[in-house]
């Protein structure tokens, strides 16, 4: 059996997930210029919020997903408001913000584990019997198809927001120069809050989709975050389109890398790719 079509498909699906995380991460990095590692845990927040509404309270699926995305967005917004904004006002260095975001990450992850136990759980109700499609001998599940479509829709929506709306233009202005944006009358606080809210919603959605595809556990955020960060950096940090390229490159390298060896090596392969890029092309594929 030819395994290549399946590997290609797996790479594209992984790429779509990484792309969503990288988009949100890049959006935040581009605006506030620090590595927000706390961003990763928002995927778990989204996943567990849906788990709570859909499986515990037995609300409808669409309502649960919308609530999950909104809650992830809200948490991202609150963390920015009560932690990062205060630090930025004090002109804290990037390293202080990075350590604080690491604290946010650890604390929220532990909180989720305390509320929902640290066991691996799945969101889908019909695990194993879901609808599948076949493309050139490769199998794709319905959830994975939704992942691909969501990836496209999110990218499209984000591109539209960034280029066609006042809000998007304001984001670009703040990324270019926060001080000058303030002077020309842009409410930078509000824009940054909005960026955190949107970025967090994207992370929440990615977490929910992963939850339906494989499952959720409190520690899921770290590996997703790292993949998103790697995709952003190898694509060109702060460059939204670079993140998209980086995500798919990472997806392909990872999935073809484990063709002959155990799948457990994925993370090591991803980081080796990152370190190679940092050494030989630190500005990423597309320079900002």
């Amino acid at each position: 059996m030819n395994i290549v079509p399946q590997l290609v498909l797996n790479s594209v699906i992984a790429g779509a997930i990484y792309m969503m995380i990288a988009l949100g991460f890049n959006l935040i990095y581009g605006t506030v210029k620090f590595f927000d590692l706390g961003y990763g845990v928002l995927t778990a927040v989204g996943g567990y919020a849906v788990f709570f509404f859909y499986k515990k309270l037995e609300l409808g699926l669409p309502v649960s997903i919308v609530l999950g995305i909104l809650i992830a967005g809200l948490i991202g917004y609150l963390v920015n408001k009560f932690v990062y904004t205060k630090l930025r006002e004090r002109k804290a260095s990037n390293m202080v913000l990075l350590v604080a975001s690491l604290g946010v990450f650890t604390a929220l992850q532990a909180l989720i584990a305390m509320l929902f136990s640290s066991q691996f759980q799945t969101l889908s109700t019909n695990a194993g019997s879901s609808t599948t499609f076949e493309i050139y001998g490769a199998v794709i599940t319905l959830v994975q198809l939704v992942i691909l479509i969501s990836g496209l829709v999110i990218t499209g929506l984000l591109a539209l927001t960034m280029n066609k709306t006042m809000f998007g233009k304001a984001i670009k202005a703040v990324s270019d120069d926060e001080e000058v944006s303030k002077i020309v009358g842009i409410n930078t606080q509000k824009i940054i809050s909005g960026v955190f809210f949107i970025g967090a919603m994207i992370a929440g959605l990615a977490g929910i989709l992963v939850g339906f595809d494989t499952g959720i556990e409190p520690t899921m955020g770290m590996s997703l975050l790292l993949k998103g960060v790697i995709a952003s950096i190898i694509g060109g940090i702060g460059n939204v389109y670079g993140g998209v390229l980086g995500a798919f490159l990472l997806g392909f390298v990872e999935n073809f890398g484990i063709w002959k060896i155990s799948g457990e090596w994925k993370d090591a392969i991803a980081f080796t790719l990152l370190i190679l890029f940092l050494l030989f092309r630190p500005q990423g594929i597309l320079k900002k």
Partner: peptide, 8 residues
């Protein structure tokens, strides 16, 4: 974990 996360 919660304690040292919040502490950070």
């Amino acid at each position: 974990q919660l304690v040292y996360g919040v502490l950070l």
